[in-house]
Computed example of a mutant assay.
Amino acid sequence: MKTTTETPCGDEFAALCRQAWGTLIPARASYLADVSPHYDEVLHDIAQRTEHTGSLGKTDIAALVVWKRLSAQTRWVTDLMSLPDTHVRAVTERAVTAVRNTTVSRSEAASTGRGIIAELPGFHTGDALASAILTAAAPTRMAVYDRRVQHALDTLRLPLTPTPGRYGRYMQLLDDLLHHGAAHADGWSARNIDTALYWTGGNPHPPATSHTASR
């Protein structure tokens, strides 16, 4: 899945990234305060298993469907469950290897991994569940994307279109936010940003102009 460039360059985009931190910092604090610390146990358990097995199976994907609160009453679920687990693991193993490849940029690794996951039923379009799989494969490097994240990005005027290669561009956008965050980004991961965006997208408010809020 080829990544196409859409992120603007220059002072205006850098200013938007810096301004976004005025929203991300309090949003992350609210997320941590209001969401149960146990909610992500499913993701953490799958990430730990994947660390040892190097792949995700049908059981792991089914658990991530619940974690993402997605509907399992769809045709793609039937098609996926009808495949041998060995086939699913063969595909996800390649995706795991791709997103863990530190010889390429985060966005390139994400794009390659997303393209591999697209070989499975139900993953040709849409990045919510695919991004959860890739995040479980590389939790310190990848991040989750969904509609709430997209809404937050739109609110912050950070461009991310639905054209092919969106997940790779999303990871590049998170890298840009980290790059322009200066001291505010210290200690933050891509996953930290996605939870802040998720919270912002579900609890919309005007972007903050102050950068003094604490995490």
Rank of each mutant, 00 (worst) to 15 (best):
V35E: 14
S36I: 02
H38L: 11
H38D: 11
H38Q: 11
H38V: 09
Y39A: 06
D40V: 04
E41T: 12
L43G: 06
H44G: 11
H44M: 11
D45Q: 13
D45C: 09
I46V: 14
A47H: 13
A47S: 15
A47K: 09
Q48L: 13
R49N: 15
R49P: 06
R49G: 15
T50S: 11
T50I: 13
H52T: 15
H52Q: 15
T53C: 14
T53P: 00
G54A: 15
G54K: 12
G54W: 15
S55A: 15
L56N: 05
G57F: 07
G57I: 02
G57C: 00
G57S: 05
K58H: 02
T59Q: 14
T59L: 08
T59F: 05
D60H: 10
D60T: 05
D60Y: 03
I61T: 01
I61M: 03
A62D: 12
A62H: 02
A63N: 09
A63P: 04
L64C: 06
V65I: 15
V66S: 05
W67A: 06
K68Q: 09
K68C: 05
R69T: 01
L70R: 07
L70Y: 06
S71W: 00
S71G: 10
S71N: 11
A72I: 08
Q73A: 12
Q73T: 10
Q73Y: 10
Q73L: 11
T74R: 14
T74F: 06
T74G: 04
T74N: 09
R75D: 13
W76M: 14
W76L: 09
V77G: 00
V77K: 04
V77W: 15
T78H: 06
T78S: 13
T78Y: 07
T78Q: 13
L80Q: 03
L80D: 07
L80P: 00
S82F: 02
P84N: 04
P84R: 03
D85Y: 00
D85H: 02
D85P: 04
T86S: 10
T86G: 07
T86Q: 14
T86M: 12
H87E: 12
H87C: 00
V88D: 03
A90I: 02
A90T: 10
V91T: 07
V91N: 06
V91M: 01
T92F: 12
T92W: 06
E93W: 02
R94Y: 00
A95Y: 06
A95Q: 13
T97L: 12
T97Q: 11
T97V: 13
V99T: 03
V99K: 05
R100I: 11
R100F: 10
R100C: 15
N101V: 04
N101A: 06
N101W: 05
N101Y: 00
T103K: 05
V104C: 05
S105Y: 01
S105Q: 06
S105H: 05
R106I: 13
R106F: 08
S107V: 04
S107N: 07
S107C: 07
S107L: 01
E108V: 11
E108F: 01
E108C: 03
E108K: 08
A109T: 09
A109F: 08
A110D: 06
S111N: 01
S111G: 14
T112F: 00
T112H: 11
T112C: 12
G113C: 14
G115W: 05
I116D: 08
I117V: 12
A118E: 10
A118V: 02
E119T: 09
E119H: 07
E119K: 08
L120D: 08
